[in-house]
Amino acid sequence: MAQDAAISKGFESSAALECVSLACLRGGRILFRGVSLKLSAGQALHVTGPNGLGKSSLIRVIAGLLPAYAGEIKATGRMALADEKVALDAGQPLARALGHWARLDGSAEADVSAALAAVDLAHLADVPVRFLSTGQRKRALLARISLSRAGIWLLDEPANGLDTASIARLGDLMARHRAGGGIVLAASHQPLPLEAAQTLALADFVPVAAAEDAE
């Protein structure tokens, strides 16, 4: 389908991500240590664990937004992060706000239309971002990630605020990205529609004191 092609195309080389013995220090305490993972094109990893355990910190360390206390990160291909921040101009119509990022990433207007259709937001293309509901904003963020042309998607609680139909669309987006040679690393305390994904239980890498604080 043309829509599928518009969303999945973009990165030129096969994506790869490897983390070796990562540790994160925040507020004077170790959140986790010894986290290792290896993903190649088409693969996915679901980082599991309750809220407050450090899943978001792991995502941000891999994205380069937090320093790693220890360990090494090796990535082939660009990364795109989707967290709680929509990062779209609230005063702009949705399509125009997405178009700003799309142009920076080398996508075309046709790609914006396809991305909006994929998350069932095409009918809101002319609505300012500030008027979107929480769930609609989350879907808009997913559309922005799909336009990023990044081979590696880092998704922090991507299903939060989504209804059943929207979670299914999220699954479709992730499947198309992987089919095109992309990687998905998603952190979530709830099940995700990630077929044949690896699982990393972050609790296995959290010191006892930190785990007790998260409960």
Rank of each mutant, 00 (worst) to 15 (best):
S40H: 12
A140G: 05
A6K: 13
G77A: 10
E12W: 04
A203P: 15
R149S: 08
S133N: 09
Q92W: 12
A16V: 00
G106A: 02
L141H: 11
S40R: 13
N160K: 05
A16N: 00
K85Q: 15
P207H: 03
P50I: 00
A70E: 15
R137G: 12
D126N: 11
R169Y: 00
I167E: 12
R29Q: 14
V129C: 06
S21C: 05
L200D: 08
L104F: 13
L45Q: 10
I59A: 11
T76V: 15
R149N: 10
I167D: 04
I73E: 02
H177W: 12
P191F: 08
G64M: 03
S113H: 13
A165I: 06
W153T: 02
G64F: 04
R176N: 02
G52S: 08
Y69F: 13
T76Y: 00
G180W: 08
E109S: 11
P207Q: 02
A140S: 13
S133M: 09
R29N: 09
L194S: 09
L45T: 06
A16H: 09
V20I: 14
T48R: 15
L98R: 07
S166N: 14
E215W: 08
G52C: 07
T76P: 00
R130L: 09
H123C: 05
L81S: 03
E109F: 02
L142C: 07
L17Y: 08
T199C: 10
K38S: 14
D163K: 12
S40L: 08
K38W: 03
E18Y: 03
S14N: 11
K38Q: 13
D120F: 00
K74W: 01
S146V: 13
Q190S: 11
S36V: 01
V129F: 03
G71D: 01
A187E: 01
G77H: 05
S57W: 02
M174N: 02
A187D: 02
V208N: 05
Q136A: 03
G99M: 14
V119K: 06
L170H: 08
S133L: 12
R60W: 03
E215A: 14
A44T: 03
H177K: 13
A186V: 06
R149W: 03
E215Y: 08
I30G: 00
P158F: 11
A87V: 10
L45S: 10
L116Y: 06
A125M: 07
H123V: 11
A15H: 04
I62C: 07
L202A: 06
R96M: 12
G64N: 04
G52K: 07
A140C: 05
Q43K: 11
G28M: 06
A114D: 08
G27C: 04
I167Y: 04
L173Q: 05
M1E: 14
A70H: 08
D156F: 10
R139N: 05
K74H: 12
A75Q: 12
R144A: 15
S21Y: 00
H123D: 13
P158C: 12
S8T: 15
Y69N: 07
G135V: 07
H123P: 00
A75W: 01
A90C: 05
D120T: 07
S56E: 09
L154R: 09
D204V: 00
A140Y: 02
T134K: 10
A179Q: 14
L121V: 06
L194T: 09
Y69M: 02
R78N: 12
A203D: 15
G106D: 05
I152L: 15
T76I: 12
L185S: 11
